[in-house]
Design a protein around this nucleic acid. Structure first.
Lengths: 336, 336
DNA sequence: TTGTATGCGTTATCAG
DNA sequence: CTGATAACGCATACAA
């Protein structure tokens, strides 16, 4: 592959001159500039980003680590991030962490080795301390979907507890008293906080959820189905079920429908996230909107701004988002 | 950030020795090796991937360009690709092309500048010639979801025509004679070929589709809804509608249901892709399985193998996939 | 306006 | 076993 040197000798000029036209340097004669550009086209010259990064001491790229790309939720997040990267002419380096401490750490390390100046990472498996350590080492390090006190200004996160609480409020307002829970078997903070939000609010209204009415399963459709299956076969009574996310809600709804239970007439179902399928399933899912794309955009912008050591523009010191309820068809007033 | 030189002087050895321990070089004393490793930990040393790529003349990374990450279809594709990259310790560089020639080209160019040794690209907007040009220049260049004769062995693609044909066959076998089409307004080859497959097969059975029964719209839920809306208000008669993809099918089905038309009793609906929502919507969508993740894996492996100039192992010279029908609930025998 | 020289962090080729 | 030293491709301060 042609290098800057090849171009230089082909054009009969020095390296420096070629370098100048590449970078739109100011002091180059129009004639030479044109000629050099011409030659570059002919020879199919491509600047070597690695060499440039080395000498420049900066790699205009944004590292991203998330759990599973196949999950529509993360895909949407990635889309948000990617859009700002593209707009700012940043290359995105992507790694999957798959919620395992070792993998997540390796992903971040690799990104660091590439010296990408900004990174937004989704990590559930790594400890606070480790993450704080990275944050200290990398100016443009931003955490998405996680809140750590010590680096609050580097976290873009959702108030899961508030989300749980507003679900409970909504259900309460509709007269529901018997509610079942279908949550994730992975006891990371998201499901824990959501559940606590629901329970606290319910308790405040004098309602408590029995242990048996809480099912844990994989946070996907299959999990939702299995959980509902269990609930049904245990003979638990409920007029509403709150699911950890839309996928589980959809799975639960499928199972309900398959068993001849009407939704929402007999049982109301509420999800979380408002991913695309919430609008596709029948009945359309009432859920909580998780503004994940917006948060991805925010996180990317924050990371970039932090990386370029901009003044404290973005340092509002808190980047909390609150989910809002989206009322569709799967929730109605309690029957009994 | 600490460099290899810093480590060397801190350890009182030469650069070469440090480099050796980094790369697990063979000839280093155990004592020195241990000591150097220790020092590297202490100083938080991270090899600089850019410098390494420069001198090594190889960047162990896989470039990926696709249309829209937010689309579950592409997310699944990306997931397949990413999984093989991770397994082979390759960093993935991701770019979105958004189906615009300029953007797609820029994405590829950027990837080239980074000298990634393999790339799998999804391009609909670029011309055959341009793509062939890239393929010639980049050994590890693989095209996904597109077939170009001249570089057949670099294409991992789906036989859309055959897919269309098998849809028609299925419908025919169920006695459908009046079928409407909802397709994409973007007239790239996928929709064109699928449609042709359907029409040819139908024609062979003596059935033709009237122009008015073919609706174009955006290839998403909204498009599907709008298209069905049009069909309905034009008073077109049909017992089956074949949609360009699952999203449009789901949209169409929504609209049908909203208008009190039973699916599949009165009208059958068939999709394409078998993305996740096909299993979530009610009735569950009968569709054609597009083995996109598998194809992503294949494309990535092919690209990597091509890049490392492996023998002609993978060069079966054709990487065609054929979609297969997945029978669920949205299609039944024709009513009338 | 253009050229020369130096160094960015590593690897690799030689010698010791 | 270990140490100099020359690239790698490019940007840039300093000369001319």
């Amino acid at each position: 592959m042609a290098t800057i040197k090849d171009i230089a000798s082909a054009a009969g000029v020095s390296l420096a001159t070629v370098s100048r036209v590449i970078n739109n340097g100011p002091k180059v004669g129009d004639a030479t500039r044109a000629r050099i550009k011409e030659i570059m086209k002919e020879m199919g010259y491509r600047p070597n980003a690695n060499a440039r990064a080395l000498v420049t001491q900066r790699n205009p790229s944004l590292g991203v680590v998330l759990a599973e790309l196949s999950d529509p939720f993360f895909a949407t997040l990635a889309h948000g991030i990617e859009s700002v990267a593209r707009q700012k002419d940043m290359q995105v380096l992507l790694s999957s962490g798959s919620i395992q401490a070792k993998t997540e750490m390796k992903a971040i390390d690799t990104l660091m080795e590439h010296r990408c100046e900004a990174m937004v990472v989704h990590s559930k498996a790594l400890s606070d301390d480790v993450l704080v350590g990275y944050a200290k080492e990398i100016p443009g390090f931003v955490l998405i979907n996680r809140y750590i006190e010590a680096i609050a200004d580097r976290c873009v996160w959702l108030d899961n507890y508030a989300g749980g609480a507003s679900i409970a409020k909504h259900l309460l307002s509709l007269g529901h008293k018997k509610v079942a829970i279908i949550t994730s078997q992975y006891q990371i903070d998201d499901p824990i906080l959501r559940l606590k939000g629901v329970e606290d609010e319910l308790n405040a209204a004098g309602i408590s959820i029995e242990k048996a009415a809480i099912e844990l399963a994989t946070p996907d459709q299959e999990g939702g189905e299995a959980a509902m299956q269990n609930l049904l076969s245990k003979g638990i009574e409920f007029t509403a079920v709150v699911a950890y996310n839309d996928a589980m809600a959809a799975g639960a709804m499928s199972m309900l429908l398959d068993h001849g239970v009407q939704v929402p007439t007999e049982v109301s179902v509420i999800g979380f996230d408002d991913v695309i399928l919430a609008r596709y399933c029948r009945p359309k899912l009432t859920t909580l909107k998780y503004p994940i794309e917006m948060m991805g955009v925010k996180a990317a912008e924050l990371a970039l701004s932090l990386a370029t050591k901009k003044p404290q523009a973005e340092h509002t010191s808190t980047h909390k988002y609150t989910p809002t309820i989206v009322k569709r068809e799967s929730v109605s007033v309690a029957l009994k």
